[in-house]
């Protein structure tokens, strides 16, 4: 989704939604916007790194796990090494509910983890706990 970025809205909270499924990006993006955030999106980890390079840091990233090119776990490891994004809140949202995988995501730098299906209320609770709302 790289390309021209419109100017940032002053004072707005920005979320980057990373999911290879357009259906999931739309649902999560709509949920996040209904909570008052602005959204950017990316189709996989590598795309997300490119988006971040252009857009600069965001306030929160919502990341899927199973994606082509670069999956969510690899993305977490890479993005946490970039100083500008080291402190950004990251919520993983995946259909994987294996506790071992969840633990790996948290160790790799995710702040929290949700299992799909999700809705605005469930996402809102997590963003609120992250003090983003």
């Amino acid at each position: 989704m790289s390309g021209e970025f419109p100017a940032r809205i002053e004072g707005a909270t920005y979320a980057l939604v990373i999911d290879d499924s357009r259906a999931a990006r739309m649902l999560i993006g709509r949920a996040v916007r209904s909570l008052g955030l602005e959204t950017l999106d990316a189709e996989h980890g590598a795309d997300a790194l490119a988006v971040l390079e252009e857009s600069g840091p965001v306030d929160v990233m919502l990341v899927d796990w199973n994606m082509p090119v670069m999956d969510g776990l690899e993305f977490l490891k890479r993005v946490r090494k970039i100083r500008a994004h080291a402190g950004t809140s990251i919520l993983m949202i995946s259909s994987e509910s294996d506790p071992k995988m969840m633990a790996r995501a948290l160790i790799a730098g995710a702040d929290d983890y949700l299992v799909k299906p999700v809705d605005a209320e469930v996402i809102g609770d997590r963003l609120s706990a992250m003090h983003l709302l």
């Binding site: 259909s95 509910s97 799909k116 299906p117």
Partner: peptide, 9 residues
């Protein structure tokens, strides 16, 4: 994808 996630456990 979501249904696969639900049966996996």
């Amino acid at each position: 994808n979501i249904t696969a996630g639900a049966i996996k456990p």
